[in-house]
Design a protein around this nucleic acid. Structure first.
Lengths: 178, 178
DNA sequence: AGATACATGTAACCTGTTACATGATTAA
DNA sequence: TTAATCATGTAACAGGTTACATGTATCT
Protein backbone atom coordinates (compact mmCIF):
# COMPACT_ATOMS: atom_id res chain seq x y z
CA UNK A 1 0.00 0.00 0.00
CA UNK A 2 1.40 3.39 -1.00
CA UNK A 3 1.74 5.46 2.14
CA UNK A 4 -0.04 8.74 1.67
CA UNK A 5 1.67 11.92 2.71
CA UNK A 6 -0.05 13.37 5.73
CA UNK A 7 2.71 15.32 7.39
CA UNK A 8 1.90 18.63 5.66
CA UNK A 9 -1.71 18.37 6.81
CA UNK A 10 -0.69 17.65 10.36
CA UNK A 11 1.44 20.77 10.30
CA UNK A 12 -1.42 22.77 8.84
CA UNK A 13 -3.73 21.47 11.53
CA UNK A 14 -1.29 22.41 14.26
CA UNK A 15 -0.90 25.90 12.86
CA UNK A 16 -4.63 26.29 12.68
CA UNK A 17 -5.06 25.29 16.30
CA UNK A 18 -2.18 27.32 17.65
CA UNK A 19 -2.06 30.37 15.42
CA UNK A 20 1.66 30.60 14.91
CA UNK A 21 4.43 28.17 15.67
CA UNK A 22 8.15 27.67 15.20
CA UNK A 23 9.62 24.54 13.68
CA UNK A 24 10.84 23.50 17.11
CA UNK A 25 7.36 23.88 18.58
CA UNK A 26 5.90 21.77 15.80
CA UNK A 27 8.59 19.17 16.39
CA UNK A 28 7.74 19.13 20.08
CA UNK A 29 4.11 18.28 19.29
CA UNK A 30 5.30 14.96 17.89
CA UNK A 31 6.70 14.07 21.26
CA UNK A 32 3.47 14.90 23.04
CA UNK A 33 -0.09 14.85 21.76
CA UNK A 34 0.41 13.78 18.18
CA UNK A 35 3.21 11.41 19.01
CA UNK A 36 0.57 8.95 20.17
CA UNK A 37 -0.50 8.21 16.63
CA UNK A 38 2.14 9.73 14.36
CA UNK A 39 5.90 9.98 14.64
CA UNK A 40 8.44 12.08 12.90
CA UNK A 41 11.42 14.29 13.64
CA UNK A 42 12.72 17.73 12.83
CA UNK A 43 14.67 16.32 9.87
CA UNK A 44 11.39 15.84 8.11
CA UNK A 45 9.61 18.87 9.45
CA UNK A 46 12.04 21.57 8.35
CA UNK A 47 12.19 20.53 4.68
CA UNK A 48 8.43 20.10 4.74
CA UNK A 49 7.96 23.64 6.05
CA UNK A 50 10.23 24.88 3.28
CA UNK A 51 8.02 23.21 0.69
CA UNK A 52 4.91 24.60 2.30
CA UNK A 53 6.33 28.10 2.17
CA UNK A 54 7.12 27.60 -1.51
CA UNK A 55 3.55 26.38 -2.07
CA UNK A 56 2.29 29.43 -0.19
CA UNK A 57 0.46 27.28 2.30
CA UNK A 58 2.23 29.00 5.17
CA UNK A 59 4.00 32.27 5.76
CA UNK A 60 7.48 32.50 7.24
CA UNK A 61 8.23 35.33 9.61
CA UNK A 62 11.57 35.58 11.43
CA UNK A 63 11.42 36.33 15.12
CA UNK A 64 11.94 40.00 15.94
CA UNK A 65 14.52 39.47 18.65
CA UNK A 66 15.77 35.85 18.51
CA UNK A 67 17.55 35.51 15.20
CA UNK A 68 17.42 31.72 15.15
CA UNK A 69 13.66 31.41 15.55
CA UNK A 70 11.26 31.33 12.61
CA UNK A 71 7.53 31.64 12.97
CA UNK A 72 5.08 30.01 10.61
CA UNK A 73 1.54 31.23 9.98
CA UNK A 74 -1.30 29.57 8.13
CA UNK A 75 -2.19 31.16 4.78
CA UNK A 76 -5.61 30.93 3.11
CA UNK A 77 -4.51 28.33 0.57
CA UNK A 78 -3.08 26.28 3.41
CA UNK A 79 -6.36 26.49 5.25
CA UNK A 80 -8.08 25.34 2.08
CA UNK A 81 -5.69 22.42 1.67
CA UNK A 82 -6.37 21.33 5.22
CA UNK A 83 -10.12 21.54 4.73
CA UNK A 84 -9.85 19.52 1.56
CA UNK A 85 -7.80 16.83 3.24
CA UNK A 86 -10.30 16.55 6.07
CA UNK A 87 -13.09 16.22 3.54
CA UNK A 88 -11.39 13.51 1.46
CA UNK A 89 -13.19 10.17 1.85
CA UNK A 90 -11.45 7.62 4.06
CA UNK A 91 -10.26 4.45 2.40
CA UNK A 92 -9.15 1.12 3.81
CA UNK A 93 -5.59 1.93 2.95
CA UNK A 94 -5.61 5.05 5.10
CA UNK A 95 -6.44 3.33 8.35
CA UNK A 96 -4.31 5.41 10.62
CA UNK A 97 -5.59 8.69 9.25
CA UNK A 98 -8.78 8.41 11.23
CA UNK A 99 -7.33 9.36 14.62
CA UNK A 100 -5.31 12.13 12.98
CA UNK A 101 -8.32 13.69 11.39
CA UNK A 102 -10.34 13.40 14.57
CA UNK A 103 -7.54 15.19 16.34
CA UNK A 104 -8.06 18.26 14.21
CA UNK A 105 -11.81 18.34 14.67
CA UNK A 106 -11.88 20.28 17.86
CA UNK A 107 -15.54 20.83 18.47
CA UNK A 108 -18.51 18.57 18.98
CA UNK A 109 -20.52 20.45 16.38
CA UNK A 110 -17.96 20.14 13.58
CA UNK A 111 -20.03 19.06 10.59
CA UNK A 112 -17.27 16.71 9.40
CA UNK A 113 -17.21 14.81 12.66
CA UNK A 114 -20.32 12.78 12.03
CA UNK A 115 -19.42 11.96 8.44
CA UNK A 116 -15.92 10.90 9.44
CA UNK A 117 -17.21 8.46 12.02
CA UNK A 118 -19.82 7.14 9.61
CA UNK A 119 -17.14 6.48 7.03
CA UNK A 120 -14.93 4.72 9.53
CA UNK A 121 -17.91 2.67 10.61
CA UNK A 122 -18.54 1.49 7.07
CA UNK A 123 -14.90 0.53 6.62
CA UNK A 124 -14.84 -1.52 9.79
CA UNK A 125 -18.13 -3.22 9.06
CA UNK A 126 -16.72 -4.29 5.70
CA UNK A 127 -13.57 -5.51 7.35
CA UNK A 128 -15.50 -7.48 9.93
CA UNK A 129 -17.54 -9.15 7.23
CA UNK A 130 -14.38 -10.01 5.36
CA UNK A 131 -12.82 -11.50 8.46
CA UNK A 132 -15.89 -13.56 9.23
CA UNK A 133 -15.85 -14.85 5.71
CA UNK A 134 -12.23 -15.90 6.10
CA UNK A 135 -13.04 -17.64 9.33
CA UNK A 136 -15.62 -19.85 7.69
CA UNK A 137 -13.50 -20.34 4.59
CA UNK A 138 -10.40 -21.38 6.47
CA UNK A 139 -11.61 -22.93 9.67
CA UNK A 140 -14.93 -24.64 9.12
CA UNK A 141 -13.09 -27.92 9.50
CA UNK A 142 -12.30 -28.29 13.23
CA UNK A 143 -9.08 -30.15 12.49
CA UNK A 144 -7.76 -27.11 10.67
CA UNK A 145 -8.21 -25.07 13.83
CA UNK A 146 -5.99 -27.50 15.68
CA UNK A 147 -3.37 -27.68 12.96
CA UNK A 148 -3.16 -23.90 12.66
CA UNK A 149 -3.77 -22.87 16.21
CA UNK A 150 -1.90 -19.56 16.04
CA UNK A 151 -3.51 -18.49 12.81
CA UNK A 152 -6.93 -19.27 14.21
CA UNK A 153 -6.15 -17.22 17.28
CA UNK A 154 -5.17 -14.13 15.29
CA UNK A 155 -8.26 -14.33 13.19
CA UNK A 156 -10.50 -14.59 16.23
CA UNK A 157 -8.63 -11.70 17.78
CA UNK A 158 -9.08 -9.55 14.68
CA UNK A 159 -12.79 -10.30 14.65
CA UNK A 160 -13.16 -9.34 18.28
CA UNK A 161 -11.18 -6.16 17.70
CA UNK A 162 -13.37 -5.10 14.81
CA UNK A 163 -16.53 -5.93 16.73
CA UNK A 164 -15.39 -3.79 19.61
CA UNK A 165 -14.37 -1.02 17.26
CA UNK A 166 -17.73 -1.00 15.53
CA UNK A 167 -19.52 -0.98 18.83
CA UNK A 168 -17.58 2.06 19.96
CA UNK A 169 -18.12 3.90 16.70
CA UNK A 170 -21.84 3.22 16.87
CA UNK A 171 -22.24 4.44 20.39
CA UNK A 172 -20.12 7.50 19.70
CA UNK A 173 -22.20 8.32 16.70
CA UNK A 174 -25.36 7.91 18.73
CA UNK A 175 -24.04 10.12 21.47
CA UNK A 176 -23.15 12.67 18.83
CA UNK A 177 -26.63 12.73 17.37
CA UNK A 178 -28.33 13.07 20.74
CA UNK B 1 10.81 4.10 15.09
CA UNK B 2 13.26 1.96 13.12
CA UNK B 3 11.23 -0.70 11.38
CA UNK B 4 12.67 -4.11 12.09
CA UNK B 5 13.25 -6.49 9.23
CA UNK B 6 10.87 -9.38 9.48
CA UNK B 7 10.53 -10.49 5.89
CA UNK B 8 13.31 -13.11 6.08
CA UNK B 9 11.66 -14.68 9.10
CA UNK B 10 8.31 -14.80 7.42
CA UNK B 11 9.91 -16.61 4.52
CA UNK B 12 11.65 -19.00 6.89
CA UNK B 13 8.36 -19.67 8.63
CA UNK B 14 6.61 -20.38 5.37
CA UNK B 15 9.34 -22.76 4.29
CA UNK B 16 9.15 -24.55 7.61
CA UNK B 17 5.42 -25.01 7.31
CA UNK B 18 5.42 -26.04 3.66
CA UNK B 19 8.68 -27.89 3.23
CA UNK B 20 9.74 -26.44 -0.07
CA UNK B 21 8.45 -23.49 -2.05
CA UNK B 22 9.22 -21.42 -5.12
CA UNK B 23 9.53 -17.64 -5.04
CA UNK B 24 6.18 -17.37 -6.76
CA UNK B 25 4.52 -19.56 -4.15
CA UNK B 26 5.98 -17.44 -1.38
CA UNK B 27 4.77 -14.32 -3.16
CA UNK B 28 1.30 -15.81 -3.40
CA UNK B 29 1.15 -16.28 0.37
CA UNK B 30 1.24 -12.52 0.73
CA UNK B 31 -1.99 -12.28 -1.18
CA UNK B 32 -3.69 -14.87 0.99
CA UNK B 33 -3.07 -15.78 4.61
CA UNK B 34 -0.17 -13.55 5.48
CA UNK B 35 -1.48 -10.65 3.46
CA UNK B 36 -3.90 -9.95 6.30
CA UNK B 37 -1.13 -8.62 8.47
CA UNK B 38 1.89 -8.16 6.25
CA UNK B 39 2.25 -6.94 2.69
CA UNK B 40 5.03 -7.16 0.20
CA UNK B 41 5.67 -8.10 -3.42
CA UNK B 42 7.97 -10.29 -5.44
CA UNK B 43 10.36 -7.34 -5.93
CA UNK B 44 11.31 -7.66 -2.32
CA UNK B 45 11.07 -11.40 -2.04
CA UNK B 46 13.49 -12.41 -4.79
CA UNK B 47 16.39 -10.27 -3.58
CA UNK B 48 15.65 -11.43 -0.04
CA UNK B 49 15.84 -15.07 -1.11
CA UNK B 50 19.15 -14.35 -2.78
CA UNK B 51 20.49 -12.96 0.48
CA UNK B 52 19.18 -15.93 2.40
CA UNK B 53 20.92 -18.32 0.04
CA UNK B 54 24.15 -16.40 0.52
CA UNK B 55 23.68 -16.60 4.30
CA UNK B 56 23.02 -20.33 3.94
CA UNK B 57 19.65 -20.02 5.59
CA UNK B 58 17.99 -21.71 2.63
CA UNK B 59 19.04 -24.00 -0.18
CA UNK B 60 18.27 -23.28 -3.80
CA UNK B 61 17.39 -26.17 -6.07
CA UNK B 62 16.31 -25.62 -9.69
CA UNK B 63 13.26 -27.50 -10.84
CA UNK B 64 14.08 -30.69 -12.70
CA UNK B 65 11.75 -30.07 -15.64
CA UNK B 66 10.58 -26.45 -15.57
CA UNK B 67 13.69 -24.39 -16.15
CA UNK B 68 12.21 -21.17 -14.82
CA UNK B 69 11.18 -22.51 -11.40
CA UNK B 70 13.49 -22.48 -8.39
CA UNK B 71 12.75 -24.36 -5.21
CA UNK B 72 13.88 -23.19 -1.80
CA UNK B 73 14.46 -25.46 1.20
CA UNK B 74 15.06 -24.57 4.82
CA UNK B 75 18.59 -25.21 6.08
CA UNK B 76 19.54 -25.83 9.72
CA UNK B 77 20.94 -22.33 10.22
CA UNK B 78 17.73 -20.93 8.79
CA UNK B 79 15.71 -23.00 11.20
CA UNK B 80 17.88 -21.70 14.01
CA UNK B 81 17.40 -18.10 12.86
CA UNK B 82 13.64 -18.57 12.85
CA UNK B 83 13.67 -20.09 16.32
CA UNK B 84 15.78 -17.22 17.60
CA UNK B 85 13.43 -14.64 16.11
CA UNK B 86 10.42 -16.30 17.69
CA UNK B 87 12.20 -16.31 21.03
CA UNK B 88 13.23 -12.64 20.90
CA UNK B 89 11.31 -10.60 23.48
CA UNK B 90 8.55 -8.42 22.11
CA UNK B 91 8.95 -4.69 22.49
CA UNK B 92 6.51 -1.83 22.17
CA UNK B 93 8.11 -0.85 18.90
CA UNK B 94 7.37 -4.24 17.35
CA UNK B 95 3.62 -4.11 17.73
CA UNK B 96 2.68 -5.78 14.51
CA UNK B 97 5.06 -8.68 15.01
CA UNK B 98 2.71 -10.32 17.45
CA UNK B 99 0.22 -11.66 14.89
CA UNK B 100 3.07 -12.72 12.62
CA UNK B 101 4.74 -14.75 15.31
CA UNK B 102 1.48 -16.31 16.36
CA UNK B 103 0.96 -17.31 12.76
CA UNK B 104 4.03 -19.49 12.85
CA UNK B 105 3.13 -21.18 16.11
CA UNK B 106 0.99 -23.89 14.68
CA UNK B 107 0.16 -26.01 17.68
CA UNK B 108 -1.60 -25.38 20.94
CA UNK B 109 1.22 -26.99 22.90
CA UNK B 110 4.00 -24.82 21.44
CA UNK B 111 6.00 -23.75 24.47
CA UNK B 112 6.53 -20.27 23.04
CA UNK B 113 2.82 -19.63 22.68
CA UNK B 114 2.16 -18.90 26.32
CA UNK B 115 5.22 -16.70 26.76
CA UNK B 116 4.36 -14.72 23.63
CA UNK B 117 0.88 -13.95 24.87
CA UNK B 118 2.19 -13.09 28.32
CA UNK B 119 4.64 -10.64 26.79
CA UNK B 120 1.96 -9.04 24.68
CA UNK B 121 -0.24 -8.79 27.74
CA UNK B 122 2.42 -6.90 29.65
CA UNK B 123 2.95 -4.50 26.78
CA UNK B 124 -0.74 -3.71 26.50
CA UNK B 125 -1.18 -3.31 30.23
CA UNK B 126 1.63 -0.79 30.22
CA UNK B 127 0.07 1.01 27.28
CA UNK B 128 -3.32 1.12 28.96
CA UNK B 129 -1.80 2.59 32.08
CA UNK B 130 -0.01 5.17 29.99
CA UNK B 131 -3.20 6.10 28.20
CA UNK B 132 -5.15 6.42 31.43
CA UNK B 133 -2.46 8.66 32.78
CA UNK B 134 -2.71 10.87 29.71
CA UNK B 135 -6.46 11.03 30.12
CA UNK B 136 -6.19 12.42 33.61
CA UNK B 137 -3.29 14.68 32.69
CA UNK B 138 -4.98 16.21 29.69
CA UNK B 139 -8.67 16.07 30.41
CA UNK B 140 -9.29 16.39 34.11
CA UNK B 141 -10.68 19.83 33.38
CA UNK B 142 -14.13 19.29 31.74
CA UNK B 143 -13.74 22.39 29.60
CA UNK B 144 -10.69 20.86 27.94
CA UNK B 145 -12.83 17.93 26.84
CA UNK B 146 -15.17 20.31 25.09
CA UNK B 147 -12.42 22.37 23.49
CA UNK B 148 -10.62 19.27 22.20
CA UNK B 149 -13.53 17.02 21.44
CA UNK B 150 -11.79 14.96 18.73
CA UNK B 151 -8.67 14.42 20.77
CA UNK B 152 -10.70 13.31 23.72
CA UNK B 153 -12.59 10.87 21.53
CA UNK B 154 -9.43 9.22 20.22
CA UNK B 155 -8.00 8.86 23.66
CA UNK B 156 -11.17 7.24 24.96
CA UNK B 157 -11.19 4.99 21.93
CA UNK B 158 -7.58 3.94 22.49
CA UNK B 159 -8.34 3.13 26.10
CA UNK B 160 -11.31 1.00 25.14
CA UNK B 161 -9.25 -0.77 22.48
CA UNK B 162 -6.51 -1.64 24.93
CA UNK B 163 -9.00 -2.78 27.55
CA UNK B 164 -10.62 -5.09 25.03
CA UNK B 165 -7.23 -6.32 23.87
CA UNK B 166 -6.13 -7.12 27.39
CA UNK B 167 -9.35 -8.90 28.11
CA UNK B 168 -8.91 -11.09 25.06
CA UNK B 169 -5.30 -11.87 25.86
CA UNK B 170 -6.22 -12.81 29.40
CA UNK B 171 -8.99 -15.14 28.42
CA UNK B 172 -6.87 -16.71 25.70
CA UNK B 173 -4.10 -17.30 28.17
CA UNK B 174 -6.52 -18.84 30.59
CA UNK B 175 -7.97 -21.08 27.93
CA UNK B 176 -4.44 -22.11 27.05
CA UNK B 177 -3.56 -23.08 30.60
CA UNK B 178 -6.72 -25.10 31.09
C1' DA C 1 34.99 33.69 27.78
C1' DG C 2 33.96 29.06 27.34
C1' DA C 3 30.68 25.44 27.59
C1' DT C 4 26.11 23.93 26.97
C1' DA C 5 21.75 23.91 25.01
C1' DC C 6 18.58 25.65 21.32
C1' DA C 7 16.84 26.10 16.54
C1' DT C 8 17.55 25.10 12.12
C1' DG C 9 19.41 22.69 8.23
C1' DT C 10 21.48 18.90 5.25
C1' DA C 11 23.45 14.30 3.92
C1' DA C 12 23.70 9.39 3.94
C1' DC C 13 21.28 5.52 4.39
C1' DC C 14 17.73 1.95 4.51
C1' DT C 15 13.22 -0.06 3.22
C1' DG C 16 9.68 -0.68 0.59
C1' DT C 17 6.86 0.49 -3.90
C1' DT C 18 6.30 1.11 -8.77
C1' DA C 19 7.87 0.35 -13.04
C1' DC C 20 10.53 -1.92 -16.31
C1' DA C 21 12.55 -6.04 -18.37
C1' DT C 22 13.69 -11.00 -19.78
C1' DG C 23 13.51 -15.83 -20.61
C1' DA C 24 10.37 -20.01 -20.27
C1' DT C 25 6.03 -22.13 -20.67
C1' DT C 26 1.31 -22.56 -22.02
C1' DA C 27 -2.84 -21.31 -24.82
C1' DA C 28 -5.12 -19.91 -29.08
C1' DT D 1 3.67 -19.81 -34.35
C1' DT D 2 2.17 -15.95 -32.42
C1' DA D 3 0.06 -14.23 -28.06
C1' DA D 4 -0.55 -14.44 -23.38
C1' DT D 5 0.93 -15.84 -19.00
C1' DC D 6 4.32 -17.39 -15.62
C1' DA D 7 8.53 -17.02 -12.85
C1' DT D 8 12.23 -14.48 -12.02
C1' DG D 9 15.00 -10.40 -11.81
C1' DT D 10 16.51 -5.33 -11.67
C1' DA D 11 16.13 -0.19 -11.72
C1' DA D 12 14.18 4.06 -10.36
C1' DC D 13 11.86 6.38 -6.96
C1' DA D 14 9.78 7.97 -2.65
C1' DG D 15 9.53 8.27 2.57
C1' DG D 16 11.34 8.22 6.61
C1' DT D 17 15.47 7.57 10.11
C1' DT D 18 20.08 8.41 11.70
C1' DA D 19 23.83 11.01 11.70
C1' DC D 20 26.26 15.07 10.87
C1' DA D 21 26.73 20.09 10.85
C1' DT D 22 26.17 25.24 11.78
C1' DG D 23 24.91 29.44 13.83
C1' DT D 24 22.63 31.60 17.92
C1' DA D 25 21.39 32.21 22.62
C1' DT D 26 21.92 31.10 27.39
C1' DC D 27 24.31 29.73 31.51
C1' DT D 28 28.39 29.64 34.68
Amino acid sequence: MPKKRVLPYIILGLLKNNGEMTGAEITAEFENEIGEFWQTTHSQIYPELKRMVADEWVLLEPDAVDKKKKWYHLLPSGQAALAQWLATPLTTTTDDEFPLRLFFLQHRDEPLLQSLITQELTLHRDKLEHLNQRLTTLFSNPQTQIDNYGHHLILKRAIERETNNIHWLESTLQELQA
